[in-house]
């Protein structure tokens, strides 16, 4: 993929900026979220690195600042 394409790919799906609605009760938005979360959970086992155990064990960084 050319870099231009990559950037295009990165810029796709320009969503409208969604301002945080200060007067909306978080709980109202919550129900929707729970449904959507279910969909994500359906996918999550495919998205997660396959070998979680091994991956997590091997993820070692040198300390930074």
């Amino acid at each position: 993929m050319s870099t231009e394409k990559q950037q295009e790919h990165l810029t796709r799906d320009v969503d409208e900026t969604e301002e945080i609605q200060l007067n909306v009760e978080p709980s109202e938005m919550d129900e929707e979220f729970v449904e959507d979360l279910d969909t994500l959970l359906d996918e999550i086992d495919e998205i997660l690195e396959e070998d979680s155990q091994e991956f997590v064990e091997n993820y070692i960084q040198r300390g930074g600042q």
Binding site: T11, D13, V14, D15, T17, E18, I20, D36, L37, L40
Partner: peptide, 13 residues
């Protein structure tokens, strides 16, 4: 974020 489950303050452009 993509699926609209978390709040955005910025747009991609």
């Amino acid at each position: 974020l993509k699926n609209g489950h978390v709040k955005r303050l910025l747009n991609r452009e």
